[in-house]
Nucleic acid binder design. Sequence first.
DNA 1: GCATATTTGTCCGTATGTATA
DNA 2: CTATACATACGGACAAATATG
Lengths: 224, 224
Amino acid sequence: MTRHMVEPDDQPLAGKVASRIREMLIDGDLAPGEKLSEQHVASLFGISRNTLREVFRLLTSQSLLTHIPNRGVFVAAPDEVCVIDIYRVRRVIELGALRAASRGHPAVARMNTLVAEAKEAQKNGDWRRVGTFNMEFHRAIVELADSPRLNACFEMILAELRLVFGQLENNAHLHEPFVELNASLVTLIETGMILEAVDRLEAYLLQSERMVLAALQRRGNQDR
Amino acid sequence: MTRHMVEPDDQPLAGKVASRIREMLIDGDLAPGEKLSEQHVASLFGISRNTLREVFRLLTSQSLLTHIPNRGVFVAAPDEVCVIDIYRVRRVIELGALRAASRGHPAVARMNTLVAEAKEAQKNGDWRRVGTFNMEFHRAIVELADSPRLNACFEMILAELRLVFGQLENNAHLHEPFVELNASLVTLIETGMILEAVDRLEAYLLQSERMVLAALQRRGNQDR
DNA sequence: GCATATTTGTCCGTATGTATA
DNA sequence: CTATACATACGGACAAATATG
C-alpha cells in the first residue's frame, strides 16, 4: 500500500535491488570472496528469496558475483590473472572501436566534456570522481564504433574493472596521469590522426594495466 | 527417487532447460517475436514458474529472448539492423584476436581439424554441419587471443548469429564459399602472415555480412 | 470507455538434496 | 557421523498491469 505510492516502481524490483548491490560492489562495501546468503540478503533488502535469486542471476551474468552450484553466490574476487585478461579485452575492444571511429562523432564532444570535468575534479582533489570520469571517457571511446552490442560487451568488462578498483585503496596516482593522456587522445581524434591515437591508447592501456597490477599486488602483500 | 538415479543431475535444472530452449531457438523451431507464456512453457517442460523465470533470465541475458516488463518474454527477432551490428562486433573481436595471435597456438590445430571436417560435411551435402563447423572455426579464431572474457563476449554474439541463421531457410550457398576461405586463413596464420590473414578475414566478414543481409531480406519479402 | 479475464510480478511455505562444522 | 545450515525446486496465493470483449 505504501511502496507503489512512494515510487513509480518503473523497473522490476529485481532490477532496482541489483543496481543497489552493484553500487555496493563497486564502492568496495562488500569484501571479495564474501558469501552472500540468500536468507540474509533477502531479509536485508526486504525482498523474497525468489526475487533475490533473480537479482543474483543478473549480477552473476555480469561477472560481479560468482555462482557455485549448491554452494551459493560469492562476491567476485578478481585476481591478477583476471586483471590481465580484462586489459587484454580492453585492448581489443577499445582499439578496435577507435579504428572504426568516424570524425565528428557526437561521442567526441562528450569526451571533451569529460576531460574538462576530470580536470575540475582533479583540482578539487576528488580522485573518486576523476576515476569515474575516466571510466566514462573510455566508454565514450567504445561508443565511437556506434555498436550497441560492443557497448554492452564493454560495459561488462568495465563493471568488473570497477570491482577491482573498489577493492583497491583509493590511490590518487592510479587516475592522475590519465587526465592529460585523455586530453591528448581527444586532440588526436579531432584532427583525424586515428592511427596515432590508436598507438597512444595502446601504450596508455599497457601503462594502466601495470599500475593496477602493482596496486593489486600491494594489497595482496598487505593481507598476509 | 527416480531422477537422481537416471542422471547425475550435475547442472541446475534451470541451466538444462535453458540449453534445451536454446537448441530450439537456433534450430528455428520457435518463430521470431513469438510470445512465450510462463504458464504454457512451464507446463510444457514440467517445471515450476519460478524455475522457468530463472531460465528466461539466462536466455534474455544472452539476447536470445526479449523481456518486456509486465508483458512477458518473446523470441528475439533480429532484423537487418541487428545483423549489421553483429558483424560490426565480429570485425572488432575477430580481427583484434587475430592481431593478438601467437604462432603455434593450440587453437590453430583445431582450426585445421575443423576445416577438414567441414570439407567432409561439404562432400556429403550436409550444409547444417558445414555451418556448425564454420561457427566453431570462428570461435577458434577468437581463442587465439587466450582471453576467457573475450571468448564469452564472442559467444554471446555468436548465439545471436545462430538465431539469425535459424530463421533463414537453409541455403547451401550461405556456407559453401567459406570452407575454402577458412583453409586459406589457416595457411596464412601457420606461416606467420598475420597481417595478410587480418586483411583476408576482414574481406571475408564483409562478404558474409552482405550474404546474410540479402538472405534476411529475401525472407522479409517472402512474408508479405 | 468500461468491465472482465488473463498474465506477470512478487511473496510465502515447504520439501529435498547437498555441503560444511 | 550426525547435525545444521543452505541452495534448489515446487506449488499456492494475491496484487498490479495488461489484454480482451
